[in-house]
Structure formats: C-alpha cells, structure tokens
Design a protein around this nucleic acid. Structure first.
Lengths: 118, 118
DNA sequence: GCCGATACATCGCGTGGCAATATATCGGGC
DNA sequence: GCCCGATATATTGCCACGCGATGTATCGGC
C-alpha cells in the first residue's frame, strides 16, 4: 500500500493525464477524478481544489470545451477535447517521453552501480 | 534543436538529478550545472537562481554536506552526499520509476490508438 | 586594463497543487 | 418527512519552488 504521489511530481504531468482521459471519452469533473484514481490504483488522487481550477485553465486555453447537461440525471459539466487539445496532447506526450528518456540516461550509471531488483 | 524542459517538469525530479550527479562524484555548484547541461544535451539547464537555493535546501535537510576549498585553484564550495542523501536517492529513484510506470499505463490506450512512429 | 568566463548568492514574481470551506442535489434508511 | 453520506462544482488562501534579474568577486587572455 504505497502512498499517493506528491504535488511536485504531479505538477509535471497532471495536464497530460487529464487531456489523455478526455481523449478516450468525454466526461465531467467528478468522474474524471475517479477515473484517474482507479486507473492509477489510488496513486493519483487529484484533489477537487486542484481539478476544477485545472479544468477552467484548460478551457480558458481552448484545449477543452464544456457544456452543462442534466439529461443523465444530475446536473453535470461535461468536458470534451478540442482540436487544439488533441494537438496539445500529442505534443505534451512527446515532451513527456523525451523527459523520461533524459532522466533515464542521467540515472543509468547509478542503476549500473546498484543493479535493480527484479 | 528541441527546447529545454519547462519548470513544471523539472519540479518533479530536479532534486533527484542533483543527488544522482553527486552520487557519481563530489563536485561544486557551477560544475554540477555544466554536468547536467552536458549530460542532457542542453535539455536540462538549471539556472543559478534555482541551483544554489536547491543545494542550500538539500544541505539544510542533511542530504548533502559542503566544504569550502581553494586548493584546486579557485575558491569553490564542494558538495558530497551524506548517508541520508544516498538513502533519499534510492527512495526517490524508486518513486520516480513508479510514477513513470503509472503515467505509462494511463497513456497506453492512447498510444495504441495512435501508434508511435519508430 | 578590460572583458568574458567562472563561481556563488539573493530577491521578487508567477505558477499551481492542496486543504479547507461552501453550496446544492440525490437516494436510502428510519 | 428527515437526516446523512455520496455526488458534484467552485473558490480562497497558503506555500514551495523554478526563474529572471541583479550583485559581487576572482581568474586568465588579449
């Protein structure tokens, strides 16, 4: 039962995660939160005070688009990716991969010294 | 010629990078900066205004230890890892690996949709 | 002597995750 | 009918930290 990831780690890729969830399927804030929690085995627990401002920010940047809808029973704010959002997602994924590869290289000699436990 | 990584990305792993450099070899601030720059092909360019406070922070947490020395020609503040620093490095590396694996899982369905260009 | 590289330091700014708090609605148990 | 916990969104203030700007000092080459 490992702890959830700290704020500094999340900072680098929360946007990416949210965009990727919305790329799979349009949804609303609260469910998005559950989705991230479940898909990460409780490791990514985005707080409400983080998520909603984040969504507003993405919308202000026209990366996502929102629409209030109560037809599914409850009044919810549904979000979907825009074309710009999809482009950003692609770019951000590439950026993330580059970053991971970079750190991997930096840590490589260290791992050689202390071989990783399989 | 890709751009250097943004502040939000670095936030998650700058400590880790600095600790890993010092694990290989004790050194001083300015050279540490060059080492990171070179080892990352210019992608990680830690600013002086970031590096020095960071080193002070690590030292305050007893993860590194410093010593002024001018015997190599110039007056420099040399840093080396403490035992606690080595332990932290190990822990932080594990945390990083877990995090990367987690994001990898979240992004997996996306990559399946849009297969990565070899 | 001047200038650029080396070397360390500090300040103020902006960003963004977080806890706390607020508000409203819904369904189930009693 | 009423209460309570889950659902659902929003805002506020706090704090950590990367960054640009700026300051200071030393060294070597021209």
């Amino acid at each position: 039962m490992t702890e959830r990831f700290g704020p500094d780690l999340l900072r680098g890729s929360l946007d990416l995660m949210v965009l990727s969830v919305l790329a799979k399927e349009s949804t609303y804030g609260y469910e998005l939160q559950q989705r991230l929690r479940d898909a990460s085995r409780e490791l990514v627990q985005v707080q409400a005070g983080t998520l909603y401002p984040l969504l507003h920010r993405l919308e202000a940047d026209s990366l996502i688009r929102s629409k209030w809808d109560a037809s599914t029973g409850r009044k919810r704010k549904w979000y979907e990716l825009t074309a710009a959002g999809r482009r950003r997602l692609t770019a951000q994924t590439k950026e993330w991969d580059r970053y991971v590869a970079c750190i991997q290289t930096l840590l490589a000699p260290l791992r050689a010294q202390q071989p990783d436990p399989v």
